[in-house]
């Protein structure tokens, strides 16, 4: 039983990481129906930027008290800001001109942007894994035979907070309304006086900023990164978004947790399970899509007729 609960904890915290990335992924898709393959790399960029800020501040290990608060805030805000700006630039330079092109063109462009980001990061920090300082103290809590690290709780809580924030933004603010209008019918939205370019740029700003925050969290969580991280993470996050219903913010989070849990339990309960995790994850994806083609919670584009 302890093992089961321990793997539950492992799965939830891993799922939290996937969920954090999947949120931005699914949001961009929800608004402009573009699978932004560069999203995973922006997430890695978030880790790289955070690392640069921390090294610049001279932080190489745990910090406590007030210092912890401002170091974390400064790092996360810088990472979100820079990633947001890069996201907007990518949209402006690579995707905007292709907005009315056939669907395949922006998709291929997104893959190209992903390669550019990966290689730029490889040039920046080299091809080998880089250590990330363990900024946040990480006491571990014992519940019977189950051990929960503070950062595992942090990841799960943050995933919920970010999801709730994003939901509020999309459904409770004027700008969120403009986004939903743009998603529903771009031309009609424009006729209603909504600035499409600004709205889409804002979408990329927020989505990429979320990726930047996720990048910081994953850096702290794994204490390691490398330029290629975003590929696998992006793939899993995309899967999570599809599993939950692409475009659906709550679905992305649910999908992330499902994938994390499936991975943990597959590793534990299948003999030599570690090598089969991806097989199991994608089998679950296929099964879900067979019976619910629009994902667990359904695509969040029901207004589209």
């Amino acid at each position: 039983m302890d093992i089961f609960l321990q793997q539950l904890v492992n799965g939830l915290s891993l799922g939290g990481i996937y969920a954090l990335i999947a949120l931005g992924y699914t949001m961009v898709y929800g608004i402009i129906e573009l699978i932004n393959f560069a999203h995973g790399d922006i997430y890695t960029l978030g880790t790289f930027v955070s690392l640069a800020v921390l090294l610049g501040l001279g932080v190489s290990g745990e910090v406590h008290g007030f210092t912890l608060v401002w170091v974390v805030l400064l790092t996360i805000v810088t990472a979100m800001l820079l990633c947001g700006i890069v996201g907007v630039l990518i949209e402006r330079l690579a995707y905007r001109r292709l907005r009315n092109a056939p669907r395949l063109a922006p998709l291929i462009t997104a893959i190209g942007v992903s390669f550019i980001l990966e290689n730029a990061m490889q040039l920046w920090r080299g091809p080998t894994p880089i250590a990330f300082p363990a900024v946040i103290p990480n006491p571990s809590l014992q519940f019977g035979g189950v051990e929960i690290a503070a950062k595992q709780i942090l990841v799960v809580v943050l995933a919920f907070v970010m999801m709730a924030g994003l939901q509020l933004f999309i459904y409770r603010t004027k700008m969120g309304k403009a986004m939903r209008a743009t998603a529903q019918d771009r031309d009609a939205a424009q006729l209603m006086g909504i600035n499409i370019n600004t709205t889409i740029a804002l979408t990329f700003l927020i989505g990429s900023a979320l990726a930047g925050a996720a990048g910081f969290i994953s850096g702290v969580y794994y204490q390691s990164t490398w330029f290629f991280n975003g590929f696998e993470a992006g793939l899993k996050a995309f899967t999570a978004a599809v599993l939950g219903g692409i475009g659906n913010v709550a679905g992305a989070m649910l999908g992330g947790f499902v994938i994390g849990l499936v991975e943990a339990f597959a590793t534990q309960f299948i003999p030599q399970g570690a090598q089969w995790t991806n097989v199991v994850v994608f089998s679950v994806l296929v099964l879900v899509l067979v019976f619910r083609p629009s994902g667990l919670l359904g695509e969040a584009l029901p207004e589209k007729v």
């Binding site: 093992i3 793997q7 492992n10 290629f228 590793t267 030599q272």
Partner: peptide
């Protein structure tokens, strides 16, 4: 006790290590 193979690009080994630890 066990011989496991990793998945390429895997980054989180906690589940595997929990299994090993047990």
């Amino acid at each position: 006790l066990g011989h496991e193979h990793l998945t390429k690009n895997q980054q989180d080994f906690k589940a595997l290590l929990t299994k090993a630890h047990s």
